[in-house]
């Protein structure tokens, strides 16, 4: 069994797009709750304890976002109290709470996505779309650390022969510019060698193919199918208006029928899937290791 992050980058991308897309276009509080629960559970099962600062900043952001709305928006019929002649309404408060949940859950999903999708995996996804874009990305990814490294080396060399010792801010800006200038020249100079090396290996001969070391396995197909089916159910429930939830002028929820419940259960399974797989794999590992 593989965890979600060990699967093919394309199936990971599809999964995350589906989960985040549904969360973004739904206004139903139950769906928001599910998205939030799934994101936090997955974050905790994957990363364990720690990341305290990140959680804290999300909590603060959540509070700010939730409290902002009733202060700005005064729609709604249930007035709780009045501040400076401005009514603070229950509806606006709940709406704020709902959208804050949505935003924070999306932020958690995005954080997870960026943790899982290393540069190489992103490249793989782009490679499937266009080998040319993939190559340009790959070259730029290589270039940035190279450039920084050279700038550091130039600074050190200059220091050790007695240049760049001034305390004056204008002088030091001047020096920084000079280093930047020469590193740029260096980059162009080396660009010629790189271009020759590409040329020598047949670049621009014709159509390119794209090689990837990530094969598509059975589990990738299964995940893609599950994602499609579950999000399909969910999206069609949304499209039929079964999950519409209105806050203004007063809170109105549609009647919950089987279709809506189906959509919600589908989404629930979808968001909980990574945590379940993660736990399952850990159990399986422990079992396998106990046999060694």
């Amino acid at each position: 069994m593989q965890t979600i992050e060990e699967l093919h980058p394309i199936s990971i991308t599809i999964y995350f797009m589906a989960v985040m897309g549904i969360a973004m276009f739904s206004t139903n509080p139950i769906m928001m709750g599910l998205s939030m629960t799934g994101a936090i559970l997955y974050f905790l099962t994957r990363n364990g304890k720690g990341h305290f600062k990140m959680h804290l900043s999300f909590v603060i952001l959540f509070t700010v976002l939730a409290l902002m709305n009733p202060l700005v928006s005064h729609n709604g019929i249930t007035v709780l109290f009045v501040v400076n002649d401005n009514p603070i309404t229950l509806e606006a408060f709940l709406y704020g709470l709902n959208s804050a949940t949505m935003i924070i859950s999306i932020l958690y999903w995005l954080r997870l996505f960026s943790m899982i999708m290393t540069s190489e995996k992103i490249l793989c996804v782009f490679g499937a779309i266009s080998p040319k874009i993939a190559l340009v990305l790959s070259m730029s990814l290589r270039f940035v650390p190279l450039f920084q490294n050279q700038a550091k080396k130039v600074n050190d060399s200059q220091k050790a022969v007695g240049y760049f010792q001034s305390d004056n801010i204008i002088d030091s800006i001047h020096q920084k510019m000079r280093v930047f200038d020469i590193v740029l020249t260096w980059a162009l100079e080396n660009g010629i060698i790189t271009a020759n090396s590409m040329e020598a290996r047949g670049y621009s001969v014709g159509k390119r193919s794209h090689f990837s070391i990530h094969p598509i396995r059975k589990n990738d197909i299964i995940l893609m199918l599950i994602t499609c089916i579950l999000s399909g159910v969910c999206i069609s429930a949304m499209a039929w208006g079964k999950m519409t939830f209105l806050f203004y002028p007063e809170i109105t929820a549609p009647e919950t029928d089987l279709f809506a419940v189906g959509g919600m259960i589908g989404y629930g399974i979808l968001v909980l899937l990574p945590s379940i797989i993660q736990k399952g794999t850990e159990k399986q590992w422990n079992y396998l290791q106990s046999k060694i």
């Binding site: 080998p131 070259m139 290589r142 080396n190 090396s197 290996r201 047949g202 193919s209 794209h210």
Partner: peptide
């Protein structure tokens, strides 16, 4: 120059680069 001849950011991609250019099957 060892550094400047390398085109891509991963070892496996660099090795595949020439063959990719010739549109070789994966």
């Amino acid at each position: 120059k060892p550094e400047q001849q390398i085109v891509t950011d991963k070892v496996w991609h660099e090795m595949a680069f020439g063959l990719e250019n010739l549109n070789t099957p994966v």
